[in-house]
Amino acid sequence: MGITDAERVLQIVGDLDRLLIEVRDPALDEAGIGREQWQILRMLADGEGHAMGEVSDMFGLPGATATRLVDSLAQRMLVYRRHDELDRRRVLIYLAEPGRTMLDHVQSSMLGRADALLAGIDPGERAELVRLLGRAVSTSDQPAHQE
């Protein structure tokens, strides 16, 4: 009995996870931030300001963990808090300029490593890879079909 498509996909995703770690972790280590902190900085890069509950929900973190992570970013002046102008009881978190600079540097470092990994792949195949991975992610974000 041969390997199924689903089994092969799981193997490939495992290998991609290893590659992602090789691309991501050196840049994060150099910046002195963890994966969750990087994800928070990326979320805040839209400039809209986000409540702590949004941070918790987006990354599936307990509220106390999200608060601890944001506190550590605020201590390094990478993010700041401001009361919501429409609801003064609500506090929003924003990306500070040093946080944007750090995020840009981390992203640039990751892109350099990712480009090196993709160097042997034809540009047309790269485009197809991006399309298929994007489709897989968007499909996984949809609720399972029930009959």
Score class of each variant (00 low, 15 high):
Gly53Val: 10
Leu118Gln: 02
Arg24His: 00
Leu86Gln: 10
Arg131His: 14
Glu128Lys: 12
Ile121Thr: 12
Thr65Asp: 10
Asp57Ile: 05
Met77Ile: 00
Ala114Lys: 08
Gln39Ala: 15
Met58Arg: 14
Thr67Ala: 14
Leu73Pro: 05
Leu132Ala: 07
Ala96Val: 08
Glu85Trp: 06
Ser109Trp: 00
Asp15Val: 12
Tyr94Thr: 04
Arg24Asp: 01
Ser56Gly: 15
Gln107Gly: 01
Gly60Ala: 02
Leu28Asn: 02
Gly134Cys: 01
Asp25Gln: 05
Leu41Met: 07
Ala64Gln: 14
Ile121Met: 15
Leu73Asp: 02
Met102Val: 06
Val106Trp: 03
Asp57Pro: 09
Leu111Cys: 12
Arg89Leu: 15
Leu44Ile: 11
Leu117Val: 09
Met110Gln: 14
Ala116Lys: 09
Pro98Met: 01
His105Cys: 07
His50Lys: 08
Arg42Thr: 11
Ser108Val: 02
Leu111Phe: 09
Arg42Asn: 04
Gly99Asn: 01
Gln75His: 13
Glu128Gln: 13
Arg68Met: 02
Glu22Met: 14
Asp46Val: 03
Arg35Ala: 14
Ile40Gln: 01
Arg18Leu: 13
Ala114Pro: 02
Leu41Gly: 02
Ala96Trp: 04
Glu36Trp: 06
Ile121Tyr: 13
Glu97Met: 09
Trp38Gln: 02
Val106Arg: 05
Leu61Asn: 04
Met58Phe: 12
Arg131Met: 12
His50Pro: 12
His105Val: 08
Tyr94Phe: 15
Pro62Leu: 03
Arg131Glu: 13
Thr65Glu: 09
Gly47Asn: 00
Gly53Asp: 00
Leu69Asn: 05
Leu61Phe: 10
Asp87Pro: 10
Glu22Thr: 08
Pro26Asp: 02
Asp71Ser: 09
Ser109His: 06
Ala119Arg: 12
Asp122Phe: 15
Ser109Phe: 00
Glu30Ser: 11
